[in-house]
Design a protein around this nucleic acid. Structure first.
Lengths: 225, 225
DNA sequence: TGTAATGTTTACCAATCGGTCAAATTATCC
DNA sequence: GGATAATTTGACCGATTGGTAAACATTACA
């Protein structure tokens, strides 16, 4: 009551007094981010509206804005929450493991994520495709560092002859693009395969092909001059 | 003067009297589509505004709408114009050619398109990513037919043992995704590679890697049980 | 050169956008 | 149960959206 002015929404004080966090807050923010994921992943940031998100979340627009003060804040919260999870498979890439097996399981994992979390994949795809205006820092920071680290691992493998000599960065790009394709371009994949091949077997087929491609393509057998 | 009502914009009569088509029409429509490509490819359909396009095109909004009556009409005209060109590389896939060489040059061509026409790539990527609401018919029609045809060619190659046994559809998907990645996710690629590797050599590196990957991965050498 | 067709612009519209406000409602805690 | 803080809502705001109307300017062509 010190100031007659506006009471601050909860998401701001949260930083100040970290202790208090209502059950309702927990639930509603969850609800909102879930809806936001639906909408942002389907239309991109600019193409999405707060009203859409509110409708999907089943609450009024001002109510949304009570928890997240702006559309940007929603998007940011979503990105932050999803990014860590999204990089998990790459983080699991183990320098000590068997190269062939590591690559194989990385492909598997990425493909599973494309199957099980297509909205998350599309969220990033939309963002990056449109110039990554909101996640540039994440790309140049944490992402680059992680990739640099893993590229070094791969380079070591190539040097010791465990896999064919190749550019580790482009290898990683290729695994990303081929696997995420099944989430991001799902409509196209379905359209081309037709109904007959659009069942769940689709992902098994893709996994088999990609393993064959990458394992075969990286086999150190012959000298690739 | 027969009707006092609105004069029809040119793009409609065009269908009726195909003969007349002004020099100005030619130029302005070109100008508009060029600007529209800029904007749509950067923000997707829903995220783009007519005002943006008008500004890029250097003309007033009503003037744009004189040539294309709606935002949708612009988008459609753009899609129609670009689609044929975009499928050209796949169309060039030759059943009679040497499999290894055909695949190699298909990769090259797709990669060149990603480098030289990134906006076109992103235009489609945006559209497909957001559920292809405007090009569903094209995907299920012309695209599917072309892919079916070329998949048959590849299948013949695998059966005759010229390349390793593999799913032709997923092979095509993989070539699409890996090559278009360099256009669609350009920002990410740059961010990860850093400035030092973001020069023109980038595409040469990518080409080398992808050829190695696909040629190696499809070599029929050993029996892939 | 005149005039009809074509092209361009200013002013405007209703709908929707992101976001605010104050009042009303509900949960929390003593 | 009452005070207090947290939550929710309807009404609203200025800016922007896609698109229109009609006056005005230019071009093509006889």
């Amino acid at each position: 009551m010190n100031f007659k002015g506006k009471r601050q929404p909860v998401t701001i004080p949260r930083a100040a007094k970290t202790l208090r966090r209502t059950r309702i807050q927990e639930e509603k923010e969850e609800q909102i981010l879930e809806a936001a994921l639906d909408v942002f992943s389907a239309s991109g940031f600019r193409g999405s509206t707060i009203d859409q998100i509110a409708e999907v979340a089943g609450m009024s627009k001002p109510n949304l804005l009570y928890y997240f003060r702006t559309k940007e804040a929603m998007h940011r919260a979503l990105i932050d929450r999803v990014l860590y999870t999204w990089l998990e498979p790459l983080r699991a890439f183990d320098a000590e493991g068997n190269p062939e097996e590591e690559i194989r399981s990385y492909i598997r994992r990425k493909l599973e994520m494309a199957r099980d979390f297509p909205r998350e994949s599309r969220l990033f795809a939309n963002e990056v495709l449109q110039g990554a205006p909101h996640i540039e820092d994440e790309l140049k920071g944490p992402l680059k560092e992680l990739v640099d680290e893993k590229a070094e691992v791969i380079r070591a493998w190539t040097k010791s002859g465990k896999i064919a000599k190749c550019d580790p960065y482009h290898l990683i790009f290729s695994i990303w693009s081929t696997t995420q394709h099944y989430a991001d371009f799902d409509v196209q994949v379905r359209a081309v395969l037709g109904q007959e091949h659009s069942g769940e077997g689709r992902f098994e087929d893709a996994a088999r092909f990609l393993e064959q491609l990458f394992i075969g393509g990286l086999r150190p057998d012959r000298s690739e001059s």
